[in-house]
Amino acid sequence: MTASLEVLATGALVTVQDRGRPGHAHLGVPRSGALDAPAHALAQRLVGNGPDAAGLEVLLGGLGVRLDEDRWVAVTGATLPARVGDRAVPTGRAVRLPAHTPLTLGTPLGGARSYLAVSGGLVVDPVLGSRSTDTLSGLGPAPVRTGDRLPVGVPAGEPAAVEVPAPPTGGPLRLHRGPRADWCDGDAVDLLVRGAWSCAPDSDRVGLRLVGDPLPRARTDELASEGVVLGAVQLPPDGRPVVFLADHPTTGGYPVVAVVEPADLWRCAQLRPGDPVRFTRTR
């Protein structure tokens, strides 16, 4: 029998996320999925769920939920104060959440996106094999709103023993040369590495937009639309680079001058508007 998760409060943006729906890019379907994939995967492991289970991605905290059955829950990603009822509970490990007791998440001390996993997983109807909310195209469930009741599946496993993840490291984003690096006037990777960049306020699940001195373009003509990878650094005509994240369009007409190392993409999920963004070359 499935249980139900009642949403008591949401912050800036709360969405259902899993590993996304790769494999449909040729139909124009974004990959979607948790922006900080390692944090999402850790939360699912902690409560004993399989890798395809869905949970909540919480932007800048502020979430309140309540279950109608006892379950294990885990919060990972951006570090924030968490309470079960009026008791402070640790993040980064499985915690028992008694039925009808609110779990509330405060404001992150650092980072931007936190992940909530519930044993049994959220079992909203999948679309094209995924339960992820795609904020670009509207596929999957709508963003979570106060008053929503989300179905929770039957737990399949026991919670994991306490797992001590490697401490998140700030570090610069490693860059590969992009397929259209020659559209930039100068060495695109070098200009990105040497530039002073910060996270723009209009950054979202589609892309990390960069504030800094615009990159000069060597060409002003239009590039014929072509497939774009996750982590692509696209250079629009205004010279403000955008790093494509999970909900990015699958084809685009702006040149990709660099590509962020896939293993570093989770860091983009944890940047807040105004945070410095640093790049380095891949070795």
Partner: peptide, 15 residues
């Protein structure tokens, strides 16, 4: 491959 994406005069092969 994870994705094979034709474009106007390109094919992207991902994964």
């Amino acid at each position: 491959a994870t994705d094979v994406v034709p474009g106007a005069c390109t094919v992207l092969v991902d994964g």
